[in-house]
Every structure is written in C-alpha cells, then in structure tokens.
C-alpha cells in the first residue's frame, strides 16, 4: 500500500445539479453516500440531499487509485467543503441550468474554492440544459471573463458515464498543460 498513489477529485456545485449522480456514474466501487430526506425546497425535485459527502473510486492500475469526493451542494454544509477540498487534483463544478440564477450559483463555488482552484484546476459542467437552455455556454464564458478566470465549460448530462469522463478528462488535461 505504501507506494500507492492516490489522486483526489472533488465534485461540487449547486444542490441537485448531479454531483451524487456523477460519482455513481463512474465509480467502480459501491459508492458511499450520506443522503438525508430533504425537508426544504429541494424536496420538490428529489427526495434526498447529500449532507456529508459522496465517495467513489476508480482503480487506474495496481499503484494508482482515483478517489472521487462529492460535497453537499447546500451552503449550510460549507463546513464539509473545506474538509473535503484539501489536496485535490482538481474540482468539477456542476451547475443546474434550470435554477433561477445559475451564474450566481456558480459564483458561490468559484469564490469558496478560489484558493484551492488557483492551486489546481476546475471544470464547469452545466447540467439540466434539457430543462432550461438559458443561460447558454457563451454567457458562462462571458461571466468567467468578467471574473478574469478561465475554465472549461461544458454542457453535460451526468447520468451518462461518457459525459462525466469528458469532464474528468478536461480537468486532467488542464493539469497536464498548466
């Protein structure tokens, strides 16, 4: 075990955007989840919400494991954000495009993980564009430009494994070419 390399990837972003779903889509082990029955407006869309963390794994080869951590989405669980973020290779930020102000939602995570992202990388996955097509990807890039930040922004459906892998790949490539 001693020469085992472990790489940590964080899935964070808006509540209900699909962090738990994304990790389930690619994990090779049965994921560890900490779902609780939702009692707030989340309940109108889905029964449960993450209150601790999600955890999944992909074994790359005998010496390398990819650890996937999902944070809770809701702000009152900020205490978990900081605990989980340490030492991550990069951040997958998922944004639910069908909420009233997706760009403001995005800013919460960009602001909160600012220092971590500056030291690693981030990719933004825009989900539920089938429910709401606006804001479009141009608006996201415009918004990032105003913040003087640049991260890949991609339309995804995290229920599809290949979409989640695409997000991971762009994160890995961002680190490779930094």
């Amino acid at each position: 075990m001693s020469n085992m390399t472990e790489v940590k990837i964080i899935f964070t972003g808006t509540m209900g955007a699909g962090k738990t779903t994304a990790i389930n889509a690619i994990s090779e082990i049965k994921t560890i989840s900490t779902e609780a029955v939702a009692t707030d407006e989340t309940a109108q869309r889905k029964e449960t919400t993450t209150v601790g963390m999600d955890y999944g794994e992909v074994t790359v080869d005998e010496g390398l494991v990819l650890r996937l951590y999902g944070t809770p989405g809701q702000r009152r669980f900020r205490h978990m954000w900081e605990i989980l973020a340490k030492g991550a290779l990069g951040f997958v930020i998922l944004v639910d495009n069908a909420r009233p102000a997706p760009l403001e939602d995005l800013s919460i995570y960009l602001d909160n993980f600012k220092n971590h992202i500056a030291a690693s990388a981030a990719v933004i996955g825009v989900t539920r564009t089938d429910v709401s097509a606006q804001p479009d990807i141009d608006a996201y890039y415009q918004y990032l430009a105003e913040r003087e930040e640049m991260h890949p922004v991609m339309t995804v459906d995290v229920r599809r494994r290949e979409d989640v892998l695409m997000l991971l790949d762009s994160l890995l490539l961002s680190r490779e070419f930094e």
């Binding site: 560890i32 989840s33 900490t34 779902e35 609780a36 209150v51 601790g52 963390m53 809770p72 009152r76 669980f77 205490h79 978990m80």
Partner: peptide, 14 residues
C-alpha cells in the same frame, strides 16, 4: 450546529 449534526451523523452511519 444543526448542519454539522446532520453531516457527522450521516458520516458516522456510513
């Protein structure tokens, strides 16, 4: 305290 309670409880159960 309420939010942390729910987090640690869920982690302890996990």
């Amino acid at each position: 305290l309420a939010a942390i309670t729910s987090s640690v409880m869920s982690l302890a159960e996990a």
